[in-house]
Design a protein around this nucleic acid. Structure first.
Length: 272
DNA sequence: ATAAGGCCCTGACCGC
DNA sequence: TGCGGTCAGGGCCTTA
């Protein structure tokens, strides 16, 4: 499912297909993907716009346009954006099609209908609750320490809380905790300075490595050209993809639930 | 303010 | 083969 590395990959690979392209028309096979506008408004305000830029913030994609509004998308769990020839019929799970002036179209495919799009003059209103970008220069171990200082929630829950850090979801939270040897149920404020430093480096490493691998193709993640990512080949615990034993120490992995999210960890490498 | 649980959705999977 | 039940979880909402 798309987390920061997957959305970053989609942004990088979609960019050259869409920059400078004009939106000539749209199709909305499932109107529910637009929530704060009527479908007619959405189509009429987006038609004819030229796409000037594409950026990522957390797990959101932000398309800047030649008008006062920006197109914002969230793929949630099962969404993907696919570049197709303009004549391709929308498949079964395609919820939105954006036809471009070069004869191609972007298909927003989303089997579970969790994905959303917004057309708004105020991007800040959509993404205002997001915490810091983990790969930004100003996200430092000190910032992480300050944010953890008064939090009693399990560290795993904090890591996938978008208001705490933007972009980390269930998979990369498990990976970062395993890499740093921290038990997912440790209260945030119980982490020592040295553990915070390790966790900080682990977050950077798992996200950066996954971007290098073009994301992890778990569930319904496809890149815009339809290719899969390979980051999950490096996973140590997430989703048990590499088997049921810890790749580091050989101990059996355990699965618990944290905030109703399946959480995988090694009880030997990550003692409580 | 934080913490925790439910909800939306539907394909995949399992046991019978 | 078919069927019902369960699971998966991002973000948002409600409740305490």
């Amino acid at each position: 499912m798309p987390e920061l590395p997957e959305v970053e990959t989609i942004k990088n690979e979609l960019l050259f297909h869409i920059i400078g392209r004009q939106i000539v028309s749209l199709a909305l096979p499932w109107a529910g993907i637009v929530r704060e506008l009527t479908v007619d408004d959405f189509i009429s305000r987006l038609s004819g716009r030229t796409i000037l830029g594409l950026a990522r913030r957390g797990k959101y994609l932000i398309f800047s346009l030649d008008g006062p509004e920006a197109l914002v998308m969230h793929l949630r769990m099962t969404g993907s954006l696919l570049v197709m020839p303009g004549c391709t019929e929308a498949g079964k799970f395609v919820r939105l099609v954006i036809y471009l002036d070069n004869g191609t179209a972007i298909h927003f495919r989303d089997p579970r209908k969790f994905g959303r799009v917004w057309l708004t003059p105020d991007i800040g209103a959509v993404i205002k609750k997001l915490g810091p970008e983990p790969l930004d220069r100003d996200f430092t171990p000190q910032v992480l320490a300050e944010r953890l200082a008064k939090r009693s929630a399990p560290i795993k829950a904090l890591l996938f809380d978008q208001g705490f850090i933007a972009g980390v979801g269930n998979m990369y939270a498990d990976e970062a905790l395993h890499l740093s040897g921290i038990h997912p149920l440790r209260p945030g404020k119980s982490l020592s300075g040295e553990e915070i430093e390790r966790l900080y480096r682990a977050i950077q490493e798992v996200l950066t490595a996954a971007i290098t691998r073009s994301g992890a193709s778990v569930a319904n993640y496809y890149r815009p050209g339809g290719e899969l990512g390979t980051a999950h080949f490096d996973f140590r615990v997430a989703h048990f993809l590499n088997g049921k034993y810890c790749a580091v120490c050989g101990a059996p992995l355990e699965r618990i639930r944290v905030r109703s999210r399946g959480t995988y960890y090694c009880p030997a490498c990550q003692p409580l």
